[in-house]
Amino acid sequence: MDYHSPASFAEASALAENATGITRFLAGGTDVLVQLRSELVTPDTLIDIKKIDGVHDVTRNADGSWTLGVAVTGAEMSEHPELGRDWPGVVEAMDLIGSTQVQGRATLTGNLCNGSPAADSVPAMVAAGVTLSVTGPGGTREVAVEDIPTGPGRTSLVRGEVISAVNIPARGENGGDAYQRFIPRTEMDIAVVGVGVNLRLDGDTIAEARVSLGAVAPTVLLVKDAARAIVGTALDDAALEALAAAASAACNPIDDKRGTIEFRTEVAGVLAKRTAKVAYARAKGEQA
């Protein structure tokens, strides 16, 4: 096994492009090292991206948008004084991952690129409209989060491509986001269903919304029907029921040791309602 710690994304990309066998980027390593130790995946090449300049930075840009380095950890996001005020849903989703120890290592990019359909931060990022800067042999392109996963353990990144930054849009006025997951325990568990909701209000009425679902299909889902069900409403009971129905209808889950098809489908609707209520309250400036 070869270990590299490049000084730039261009170098990281070149290393990955020229590597043979199995290549993994090493961010927090909370997936990579666990898979290595349990002999699930033994990489031939490990490319540590934590030594690249700027990867630990959290930057608020002039237009109010945010740029997060790819090695920023969950703990650093939670402890940031302003990020959570703008994007409480993204921060709470990341904060749900693992334990205190895992929080000190785990990153958004690692969570996304590991390719788990149940990854917690991903529905929140999709709802928030996050994009990624992807550096490859041909330069850098910008890709929406929902376009990265292509199936369990798979992404649309091609050989030689590495994510070089996480871009979160400007929060703007009267907006709020939230993420909730269902797990059978209270923590240290894997989402059976995850729901991200991000919305903007015009008075009491929802003007814009994005609703996403995790763990109910091979990849994260951006559910446009669910957003349509609440846009133009003040999240009254009828809107909530329509939201739940749309969320459940979008599900295409599997039966497995973590939950049945019926259970996941039903609970997706329940959680969509609960999460939308929190996002709505946050958009109104209420504590939730």
Binding site: T186, E187, D189
Partner: peptide
């Protein structure tokens, strides 16, 4: 593994 063999955690 303990991820899927769900023993109670302290907060449960």
């Amino acid at each position: 593994i303990f991820l899927d063999y769900r023993i109670p955690v302290a907060s449960d």
